[in-house]
Amino acid sequence: MTDSPSDQPSQHAFSRDDVLRVARLARLSLDESEIQAITNQLANVLDYVRILEQADTESVQPMSGASGRTDVLRDDLPSPSLTRTQALSSAPRHDDHFFLVPPVLDTTAK
């Protein structure tokens, strides 16, 4: 192992609490059988990916893309885009102007 300690994944197994925490972050409802399956399967996968600790990446720059193109700019000119009707057309709920969602604030509280 060649990287600094802060680069090391924690050594504890992937727990049920980890699954619940990550599911909350991902906004993903899971049922009980999924929680159990994912806990075991991800523990195995995370155990496997520890192999990367064996790679010496001391002075290696992270590679974030494969095309080598960065900071691709274009002129800021108006161009055709979707109409409001088109943009709203696939929404599960909408009115003539907006996407409709459940209330964000509790409207029953006084």
Binding site: D3, S6, D7, S10, M63
Partner: peptide, 20 residues
């Protein structure tokens, strides 16, 4: 999980370095 706070460097960034 790999992108979450505390794990990003160990998993995602490490993988990006190995990718290079």
């Amino acid at each position: 999980y790999a992108l979450s706070a505390g794990y990003y460097d160990a998993y995602y960034k490490k993988a990006q370095k190995v990718r290079r």
